[in-house]
Write a protein that binds this DNA or RNA. Structure first.
Length: 427
RNA sequence: GGAAGGGUGGCCGAGUGGUUUAAGGCAUCAGUCUCGAAAACUGAAGUACUGGCAACGGUACCGUGAGUUCAAAUCUCACCUCUUCCGCCA
């Protein structure tokens, strides 16, 4: 959520940010509800002050043994009026809140202009993408080495749910552990292993709801005696960021740096047909996520740190990559600035997104009510997160990049998690 | 699944309808003392919304939501959640 003071006092700043994003949001409606709520609130406060004074007078009268029945009767009328106005006020307030939850974050001034992914800026790159060599694609390699089984995955669950088999299953597990262990031992993160099902309120805290409900898997608890309303996590960002919802952290403890592995579940509604081949777009996939809770004055440095950690993992895996600075029109709902990391897939002959590192400023902190205390003052903190990394497309690039002709070479950095294995070859 | 007991400020914890303006403690901040720190002492200080240039006001908030009442942390109902015990179970 945006700071209400910002759109109330400087609506033109908000309008300009929304325009850069290409977002269609009815700011005037929000301003209208906001003004109406304040007017009702002021009237209500006056009536309540009146009632409080009257109640006090009644108490005094009764203590002194007088007859308060006339005063009580008079105050009853005020009470009825309050009840009526309160209902009106609450309805308007709820409308304003529901609308405010649909408003995206504003792009930071440093974010490049642009409407779509075509306008993103290449900020950095590493390695030499192999553009000429023709290698078998990851599906072919997987078939030859028996690394995964899409048909049987589809049989038991539907499309987009692969089964990893044999060396493929071990390679997947090795990547996850390599990512986690590297974050913990080299980058100083604290590992957490969160639940995969979270409440509706938690999904609102990080911004997945209310706007993107159709992309989420929902478990509504039908048939159970307790009607749960829970969602499968689309990313570990959701449970980990909300761990500290409604808390006031000590300034000295910041930044808090967590990493977490979870499976991620996405319906990918509306994206049928695009990138659906093989591992490029799945309904369930594995990802290690980095999440930071930062002091507002340090969050931009933390964003660069997140990005550098994700880059380091790709270098260790010897995968050529590039870093994109996303344009205003291509950023996610809650981000104020976002870097995407893309690896080169030689057989696909294209860049594949494997990480997204974002600074949300106080956008999520305001929704989830995550604050910190410094010199006696309580303030909202800043949240950030970045993938480190999502495995499916890393796996694609790894298989295609390190194909030797009859097997896949395991990069030296990953070998400790593969029991020292140097190459996966056909059984 | 059954039974019982809890949920109060950053944290702990008192509080059974109107002197609660939520006691007390811890932690925090400022000051005194000190070369400096610690300790001790003195003082300040909840959060949100709202009115006001400001000084300073108003309102709400004791797990959540409804209800009773002139008046609710306190009484009633529902729900959420935690703890303990029993049952079942990887």
């Amino acid at each position: 959520m945006l700071d209400p003071k910002l759109y109330r006092e400087n609506p033109e700043i908000v309008r300009e940010g929304l325009r850069r994003r290409g977002a269609s949001f009815d700011l005037d409606a929000l301003l209208g509800f906001d003004a109406e709520r304040r007017a009702l609130g002021t009237e209500l406060d006056g009536l309540k002050a009146e009632r409080n004074a009257a109640s006090e007078a009644i108490a005094r009268l009764k203590r002194e043994g007088g007859d308060a029945s006339a005063a009580i009767e008079k105050t009853r009328v005020t009470g009825d009026r309050i009840k009526e106005l309160q209902a009106k006020h609450d309805a308007v307030e709820e409308k304003a809140r529901q609308l405010a939850l649909l408003c995206p974050n504003l792009p930071d001034a440093s974010v490049p202009d642009g409407k779509s992914s075509a306008d993103n800026k290449v900020a950095a790159s590493w390695g030499a993408p192999d553009q000429a060599n023709s290698v078998p694609d990851h599906m072919e390699i997987g078939k030859r080495l028996k690394l995964f089984d899409f048909e049987r995955g589809a049989k038991i669950s539907g499309s987009g749910f692969p089964i990893y088999t044999g060396a493929g299953a071990r390679l997947e597990r090795a990547l996850i552990n390599f990512f986690l262990d590297t974050h913990v031992t080299r980058f100083g993160f604290t590992e957490v292993s969160p639940p995969y099902l979270v409440s509706r309120n938690t999904m609102v805290g990080t911004g997945q709801l209310p706007k993107f409900e159709e992309d989420m898997y929902r478990c509504d608890g039908e048939g159970g005696d307790r009607a749960r309303d829970q969602f499968l996590v689309p990313t570990a960002e959701v449970p980990v960021t909300n761990m500290h919802a409604d808390e006031v952290l000590d300034a000295a403890s910041l930044p808090l740096s967590y990493c977490a592995y979870t499976a991620c579940f996405r319906r990918e509604a509306g994206s049928w047909g695009a990138d659906t081949r093989g591992f490029l777009r799945l309904h369930q996939f594995n990802k290690v996520e980095m999440v930071k809770f930062a002091h507002p004055e340090k969050s931009w440095d933390e964003l660069e740190a997140l990005r550098s950690h994700a880059e380091e993992l790709l270098r260790m895996l010897e995968l050529p990559y590039r870093v994109l600075e996303l344009c205003a029109g291509d950023m996610g709902f809650g981000a104020a600035k976002c870097y995407d990391l893309e690896v080169w897939a030689p057989a696909e002959k294209r860049w594949l997104e494997v990480s997204s590192c974002s600074n949300f400023l106080d956008f999520q902190a305001r929704r989830a009510n995550i604050r910190f205390k410094e010199a006696g003052k309580t303030r909202l903190l800043h949240t950030l997160n970045g993938s480190g990394l999502a495995t499916p497309r890393v796996l694609v690039a790894l298989l295609e990049t390190h194909w030797t002709g009859n097997g896949v070479r395991i990069p030296a950095a990953l070998r400790p998690w593969m029991g020292g294995l140097e190459e996966i070859v056909a059984a």
